[in-house]
Design a binder for these strands. Structure first.
Lengths: 92, 92
DNA sequence: CATTTATTTAGATTATCATCTAATTATCTA
DNA sequence: TAGATAATTAGATGATAATCTAAATAAATG
């Protein structure tokens, strides 16, 4: 399997513990930024930064709902990441 | 599952593309540093640095053989990492 | 035992990244 | 429409991390 820029963005997205925590929280279901924020001791700007990285890696999706933005896990990319990951260590 | 320092070292170990490449190369079998080096355009010092990070994360093992050091994948930790990884996205 | 070979360690440099505060954008509501 | 609320963006700062060259360590060999 070739390493692509997409792989790069996925691996660096999950390299940060706060972002892994966000992914974990989103497993339970979609949440607004404020809801996500309630689990962290981070400024809104920092959280926004992390969400942006997850979004660029397509690990999450966003939609607008009034003033809020609702984040969800992007299951298809999560599955893709699991595949990439399994292949990194396959045939050993 | 709780995130531990061990998880942290594993995720940051695989965050770097050179280190993922090293792991990939080691899938085929154990290799000396010089053998690994032949796959890269990096100084020996830099390679040594990456190998050290992989070793600290216990993703690889080293043994001495004369002047050489032979690196191998540490299969049990690789499996542990796969488990951690699968759990990050389980129950979605 | 002096020299060569294999690898690591030390120390410096540069780039990347997480974080913050302040400012901005967008939406809602009285 | 003015003010409040939700979230992002801009810009700065400090911490990490990747990389290099040079020096050090350790083993092999003539």
């Amino acid at each position: 399997m070739r390493e692509t820029e997409k792989h790069e963005s996925l691996f660096s997205a999950i390299a940060d513990i706060q972002r892994r925590k966000i992914l974990n929280i989103l497993k339970k279901g979609e949440l607004s930024v404020a809801d996500i924020k309630s689990h962290f001791d981070l400024s809104g700007a920092t959280l926004s930064h992390h969400l942006n990285i997850l979004k660029n890696a397509e690990l999450v999706r966003v939609r607008r709902q009034g003033q809020q933005r609702i984040y969800t896990l992007n299951l298809s990319v999560v599955e893709e990441l699991m595949l990439i990951f399994n292949q990194l260590f396959s045939r050993i």
